[in-house]
């Protein structure tokens, strides 16, 4: 297994990781730099442990470092209509509008969270990492991931108040 091929297997999730950590940064550049750094750190890789979270942790750190120097905070965004795949189509135009409205409402809540809350939610739900992977990627203890996720979801619930303009069905 060539190193280039090995990291290419994880390239898509690496780009997503860099993007959720720093939506305002250049994710591709961060990932390229992280791949170089990971190569140089291969000697410190613990034999037999999973490679993907180890690599993603380096990606996340690289993205985070770039975010600190970037300034203005930018949130995550929904795909534009033309970027959607045919299988994303909702069963009817009406339900598509409702689903989009719900997503925008939820996303506004996520974007309003603090960085560390947003990161743990993004890792679990947007990158679909396991709790153990999330812990490794974010450099947290497993117990901290559980408690931080629970707290972040609580804050998200609060942020999703009906007065925020979200669809409440009222």
């Amino acid at each position: 297994m060539a190193y280039e091929d090995l990291v290419r297997r994880h390239q898509a999730v690496a780009i997503r990781t860099a993007h959720v950590i720093a939506p305002d940064g250049d994710a591709e550049d961060a990932v390229q730099e992280a791949f170089v750094k990971a190569y140089r750190a291969l000697g410190r890789f613990r034999a037999g442990s999973p490679f993907r979270p180890w690599l993603l942790r380096i990606v996340a750190n690289e993205a985070r470092n770039r975010r600190r120097s970037a300034g203005r905070r930018v949130g995550l965004a929904l795909r534009s209509a033309e970027d959607r795949r045919p299988d994303d189509a909702a069963p009817s135009p009406e339900s598509a509008v409702l689903a989009d409205e719900r997503r925008r409402w939820l996303l506004a809540g996520v974007n309003a969270l603090r960085d560390d809350d947003r990161a743990v939610i993004a890792a679990r739900y947007f990158l679909e990492l396991s709790e153990a992977e999330t812990a490794e990627v974010l450099g947290l203890a497993l117990g901290t991931v559980k408690s931080r996720l629970s707290r972040a979801l609580g804050r998200l619930r609060s942020a999703l108040g009906p007065t925020d303009g979200g669809p409440t069905g009222e």
């Binding site: 995550l76 939610i121 739900y125 409440t168």
Partner: peptide
């Protein structure tokens, strides 16, 4: 969308977030 956030179950929020993640714009 049909419930007040206070009554939203964890799994509903989780499934909403998973759905959101699949519709996010990524580079």
């Amino acid at each position: 969308g049909r419930r007040l956030p206070e009554t939203m179950a964890d799994d509903e929020l989780a499934s909403g977030l998973l759905d959101l993640g699949r519709m996010l714009a990524f580079p």
